[in-house]
Simulated scan of single mutants.
Amino acid sequence: MGLGDKISNEAENLGGKAKEATGNATNNDRLKAEGQTDQVKADAKKVGEDVKDTFKKD
């Protein structure tokens, strides 16, 4: 996984956490759900990149 990909995924994850926290604080269910979705996307990308890295090592 390239450093740029790691940074991008972590930024998406942190942005999702911020959206979720803002949604919780303002009782905005849509914003909270968007934040959770962003976090899931970032996690899925990380898993995909980890799998690629595993196969590149062999």
Results as ranks from 00 to 15, higher is better:
G2P: 09
L3H: 11
L3I: 09
G4M: 13
G4C: 05
D5V: 03
K6C: 09
K6M: 09
K6P: 01
K6W: 03
I7T: 05
I7L: 14
I7G: 01
S8K: 08
S8E: 06
S8H: 05
N9Y: 11
N9Q: 08
N9F: 09
E10C: 10
E10R: 15
A11M: 07
A11L: 13
A11R: 12
N13Y: 06
L14K: 07
L14W: 05
L14N: 10
L14C: 06
G15R: 02
G15H: 02
G16Y: 00
G16V: 01
G16M: 01
G16I: 00
A18M: 10
K19G: 00
E20S: 09
E20I: 01
A21H: 06
A21E: 12
A21Y: 07
T22Y: 08
N24R: 08
A25P: 01
A25I: 03
N27W: 01
N28I: 01
N28P: 04
D29S: 15
D29W: 00
R30Q: 15
L31D: 13
L31S: 03
L31T: 08
L31N: 05
A33W: 12
A33M: 11
E34V: 06
E34T: 10
E34K: 10
E34A: 04
G35D: 02
G35K: 01
G35S: 05
Q36W: 05
Q36P: 08
Q36L: 06
T37A: 10
T37C: 05
D38T: 10
D38G: 07
Q39P: 06
Q39C: 07
V40F: 11
V40P: 02
V40D: 11
A42Y: 00
A42R: 00
A42I: 00
A42W: 00
K45V: 05
K45H: 14
K45Q: 14
K45T: 08
K45S: 12
K45I: 02
K45Y: 14
K45E: 10
K45C: 03
K46T: 11
V47N: 11
V47E: 07
V47M: 05
V47S: 10
G48Y: 12
G48R: 07
G48F: 11
D50F: 06
D50T: 12
V51Q: 12
V51D: 03
K52D: 15
D53V: 13
T54S: 15
T54A: 15
F55G: 06
F55K: 11
F55S: 13
K56L: 10
K56C: 04
K56I: 04
K57Y: 10
K57S: 13
